Amino acid sequence: MKKLVLVLTTITALVFSQMATAQKTIVDVAVGNDNFSTLVTALKAADLVEALQGDGPFTVFAPTNDAFAKIDKETLGNLLKPENKETLSKVLTYHVISGNLMASDVVAALKKGKGKVEVETLSGEKLTVMQKDGKIWLKDQNGNYSEITATDIKGSNGVIHVIDTVVMPE
């Protein structure tokens, strides 16, 4: 009987923890992960937190702190200044597409597109998703690449895919 109670308690705890996790928006998920602290700082500086906590759904290609560290410190510092909010917003919305694009959707689109597909970002510009050397990459409009290193981090209003380099619009 004790084992049955333990099993039922464990299952109930898992179900409720999954439900609690699913209720977090993509911004809440980013805030709760130390690897996204620079992204969260940038979202706050660009006044995009509230927008990305909205209904969505959104697919976010989220750069890690290490990805932001690849940007020259002076350039990143300037982007975070209040007078550059519009430019920062354009950079950040270049990492977001409308809809809930799971990894399986990306793979299916790549098969249809023979290893390459363009998506329109919230900034209104194109981002190319491509398969190369068994990995999935983003190619920005400047010809720079970013590897998708983790996928399908779910929030209540979308999904996050982790990238290793900040992509930049033209």
Rank of each mutant, 00 (worst) to 15 (best):
L101F: 11
T75A: 13
T87K: 13
A51Y: 07
F58L: 02
Y94P: 06
G99P: 15
D55E: 15
L92Y: 03
L101W: 08
T64N: 13
L48P: 09
E83T: 05
L79T: 03
G54M: 06
G77L: 06
K90Y: 01
G56N: 10
L79M: 12
S104Y: 04
K73V: 14
A45V: 11
L101M: 14
V91S: 05
G56I: 10
I97Q: 11
A46V: 14
V60I: 15
A103H: 03
D105T: 09
L79K: 03
A42Y: 02
T93P: 11
N100Q: 15
K85E: 14
F61M: 09
T93Q: 11
L48H: 08
N65T: 10
G54L: 05
D55F: 00
A62K: 07
A45C: 10
K44N: 13
D105H: 12
F68V: 01
N65W: 08
A42Q: 03
D55S: 12
F68C: 00
D47I: 05
I97R: 08
E83C: 07
N84S: 11
Q53K: 14
T75H: 07
T75M: 09
L92W: 02
G77Y: 04
N84A: 07
D66G: 13
D72C: 08
D105C: 11
S98F: 00
M102I: 12
N65A: 08
M102N: 10
P57S: 03
L92H: 03
K44C: 09
N84L: 08
F58W: 02
G77F: 07
D105F: 05
D55L: 05
T93E: 14
V96F: 00
K73F: 12
L88C: 03
F68I: 00
P63F: 02
T59Y: 06
I97G: 00
N78E: 15
A51T: 15
N100P: 03
D66T: 12
F68D: 03
A51Q: 15
S89W: 00
D72A: 04
N78K: 15
P82V: 09
K90C: 06
E50H: 01
T75P: 00
L80Q: 12
A45S: 13
A45E: 09
K73N: 15
P63V: 04
G54W: 02
E86N: 03
E86V: 13
K73Y: 07
A69Y: 04
A62P: 05
T64V: 10
N84C: 11
V96D: 01
I97M: 11
T93W: 03
L88Y: 01
F58K: 02
H95G: 11
A67P: 06
N78V: 07
G77T: 09
N84Q: 14
A103W: 02
A51N: 13
T87W: 06
K85L: 05
I71Q: 12
A103L: 12
V49E: 12
V106G: 00
